[in-house]
Design a protein around this nucleic acid. Structure first.
Lengths: 361, 361
DNA sequence: ATGCAGTGATGAAACGTTTCATTGTCTTAT
DNA sequence: ATAAGACAATGAAACGTTTCATCACTGCAT
C-alpha cells in the first residue's frame, strides 16, 4: 500500500522532523514588521488587509506602502489557524489519467482559483484493487486536513456513497448520488442513453450490442436502461446475449470486442454502444488489430464527450456533455454553500446530454 | 484574467470573511483534550506523536488510547505555524489536459503521498495568451503559500527560466533547464531524435519531413538537431523546406499536415517526424480527413511516449520515455533536498530514450 | 454643559501546535 | 554518601494571524 500511509490517523509522524528546517528558511516579513514600519498597530495592518473600510485613508496608504516595501504577504497557516479557514478545496477523483478527469479538474480549478482557493487533488485508485476502502480512507483523512470544501468526482468512492453521510464540510458530488448526502450534479444518463437508442434505431440498426459499465454503478445501469428504452420505443426488439458488462476501463473494452467477435462471429451485430469512451477506445484498438472495419463492419457509438475526442479518427458518434459543464456547475454549488447563498437541503441537478452523430455510426 | 487574482500580493482579501464560518464547524478535539483525558501534559502528547522514544511505554499507551477514543488528529495549520513546514508540495504545469501531464502528476503524487506530502497543482496556461507572465506570477505567489517544495513541469514557465533563480525553496525542474537554477531531470532529447533519425534512415526513407516544437524551446531544437544528425550520419541528405515549426499543440499538427499536403502536393515525403504526440495527433486526424493513408502514403513517427498511446491505432512508431520515469526521479531529487541527503550544487540528470517501432513507420 | 452615537485606532487574547529550558527521579560511578 | 548523568515528564513561550473589547476623540442633539 504505497499510495497511502494507512496508519496516518494514528501516527502523524513527521518523517523529516528536524532534518531540513535549518537549511531552507524563507525570510518573510510579518505583520508586526509592517506595523512597526508604518507606525501603526498590528490590528490596523490587519484591518487594512481584511476590512479596508474600517481604517482611515491616510493610514491605509501608509500601511500599503510599508507592505510593498517589505514585500509582505500574510502567512496562510497563521491565518488559517486563527480563522479556521484554509482557502483550500480538496478534489477527490479516481485517477487523473482517465481522460474524463483532466478537463474536470482544470475547470474546477480555474473557477476556484479566480476567487482565491487552492486545490488539493487526490487520486483514490490504487493498483492493488482495494480501491473501495481507499475511497473511505481518503474521505476520513480529508476532514483531518481541514479543507474548506470538497468536490468528489464520480467513481472516486467506487460506489461507497455512504461515506459521504459523515462528511461535515461543504461538499459537492459529481455523478449519481443515490443517498443525497450532499449536493450533486449529474449528467442525464438515462436521457443520453435514450437518445442514442433512438438514434441507432432510426438509422436502421436492428442487431445492436451494448457494453455497459459495472452493474453496481447506478448510473451505468441508467445509461443502459435509457438506451434499451430508446431502442424499444423506436421498434428495435431486445435480443438476448447482446449485453456485456465492462469495468469502464480500457482493457475491458478490448475484452468486450473479443467477446463480441467470438460470441457473434457468424453474425456480427451492425452496431455496438459503449458506456464510456475508455471502453470504446479499447474496443476500437482491438477491432483495428483484428481487421474489423468501423463503421463498415460494425458501427460504434459511445456515451461521453471530452474535448480530446475532437482529434480521434474515425470521429466517434457520441452522446454526452463536457466534463467542464459538470465542473462549472459543481463549483457554483460549492461556492453557494461556502458563502451561505444556499443552505437548505442537499440538491441534485441534472445536466442534459447532446448527441453528436459523426463518422462511426 | 479570470484564472488568477492578479492583485493578490497586495490585497489578500478574504472574500467570504465572515459568511460561512458560523455554519460549518467541524468539532475536532485538540491536543489539550487528549492530554486531559490521558492525565498527562500537552507536551507529553506531542512527544508521543512526534518523538515516541522520549516517552515511557505506559504513558505512550495511555495517550494512544485517549487519541483513539477522541478520534484526535493534529491540526495541520497549527502544526505548520509552529514548525514552519506545511507538508505540501506544489506542482506547476502548463495544462493538465495535455496528455503528457496526468501521468507525470499522478506518479509524483503517489510518491509524495507515500511519505506524507499533499500536492497543490497549478495550471499556468491561460486562454488569453499571456501565459509567459503567468508562469512568473505563479512562481512568486507560490513562495507566499509556504509550500515545502516545488516541482516545475516542463513548459509551465513558457521558457522564463530565470524566474527560478529567485526561488528559495527546494525545487526540481522537469525538462531542459539552461540556467541550472535548481535540480532538474530531462529526457535525452538529442539522443532520442538521433535514434529516430537513424531508424528512419535505415528503413530506407530519403525524403523526410520534420515538425518541430517552438524554436525558443531549447529542447525542441535539441530533438531537431539530434534527428537531423541521425539522418545525416546514416546517409540521408538534408533537403530544404522539409521542416515546419509548430507549437507543440494539437491544432498546429493539423496545420503542419495541411502545410505538408500543400507544399509537397506533387511529391509527398515518405515519412514525417513530429516533435511530440499532440502535434502528431492533430496531423493524423487531418491525414485521415484528407484520405491520406498512414503508413502507406506517408510514414509517421513521433517523439514521446505515454501509456495512453497503447490504445491508439494505428500504433505510433515513437521514441521517448514515460513521464512516470521523469516524475519518479524528480521526486527522488526533491526528497533528497528536503531531508538534506543532497545539498550541493544543483544537478542535472538525463533520462535515456527508448525507440519503439510500431505500425506507422 | 451633558450625554450619545459614530469613527478610528489599539492592546490583549486566542487559535493548536512544538520545543526550549527546567525539574524531579532513578542509576551508576566515584 | 555523594556527584554526575541519563531518563521522564512538564510549564511556558513562541509561531503570525484575527477579533473582541476598550478607549479616545469628534460632532451633534438635548
Amino acid at each position: 500500500m504505497p499510495y497511502l500511509t494507512m496508519n496516518y490517523p494514528k501516527l502523524f509522524t513527521n518523517r523529516f522532523a528536524n532534518a531540513f528546517k535549518a537549511r531552507y528558511f524563507a525570510i518573510m516579513s510579518t505583520i508586526a514588521e509592517v506595523a512597526e514600519r508604518a507606525g501603526v498597530s498590528k490590528t490596523t495592518v490587519s484591518h487594512v488587509i481584511n476590512h479596508a473600510d474600517r481604517v482611515s485613508k491616510s493610514l491605509r496608504e501608509r500601511v500599503h506602502r510599508a507592505i510593498d516595501e517589505l514585500g509582505y504577504a500574510p502567512n496562510p497557516q497563521a491565518r488559517s489557524l486563527r480563522t479556521g479557514r484554509t482557502n483550500i478545496i480538496a478534489m477527490l477523483i479516481p485517477d487523473i489519467r482517465n481522460p474524463f478527469y483532466p478537463e474536470l479538474v482544470k475547470t474546477a480549478q480555474s473557477e476556484l482559483e479566480a476567487i482565491g482557493f487552492d486545490m488539493l487533488i487526490f487520486n483514490t485508485d490504487v493498483p492493488g484493487g482495494r480501491s473501495q476502502d481507499h475511497g473511505r480512507e481518503y474521505l476520513s483523512q480529508i476532514s483531518n486536513k481541514r479543507v474548506d470544501g470538497l468536490i468528489v468526482g464520480d467513481f472516486a468512492l467506487h460506489g461507497m456513497h455512504d461515506a459521504l453521510l459523515k462528511i461535515d464540510i461543504p461538499s459537492v458530488f459529481i455523478g449519481h448520488l443515490p443517498n443525497q448526502a450532499v449536493d450533486s450534479v449529474k449528467i442525464d444518463d438515462h436521457g443520453g442513453g435514450y437518445q442514442m437508442g433512438e438514434y441507432l434505431a432510426k438509422k436502421g440498426h436492428r442487431r445492436i450490442a451494448h457494453v455497459t459499465g459495472p452493474s453496481f454503478f447506478k448510473e451505468a445501469m441508467q445509461r443502459a436502461e435509457g438506451f434499451e428504452q430508446g431502442l424499444h420505443d423506436y421498434g428495435v426488439p431486445l435480443i438476448e446475449g447482446m449485453r456485456y458488462e465492462g469495468t469502464y476501463l480500457t482493457p475491458s473494452g478490448k475484452d468486450a470486442a473479443q467477446w463480441l467477435l467470438a460470441r457473434h462471429a457468424a453474425n456480427l451485430p451492425s452496431a455496438v454502444f459503449f458506456g464510456n469512451y475508455l471502453m470504446a477506445a479499447g474496443a476500437l484498438a482491438e477491432f483495428y488489430d483484428r481487421g474489423v472495419r468501423v463503421p463498415e463492419d460494425i458501427a460504434v457509438a459511445v456515451f461521453g464527450d471530452q474535448p480530446q475526442l475532437e482529434y480521434i479518427r474515425p470521429k466517434l458518434t457520441r452522446v454526452g456533455n463536457s466534463p467542464a459543464v459538470l465542473a462549472r456547475r459543481a463549483t457554483e454549488m460549492l461556492i453557494d454553500r461556502l458563502n451561505g447563498t444556499y443552505d437548505a437541503e442537499p440538491r441534485t441537478e441534472v445536466v442534459p446530454c447532446i448527441l453528436h452523430p459523426f463518422d462511426t455510426a
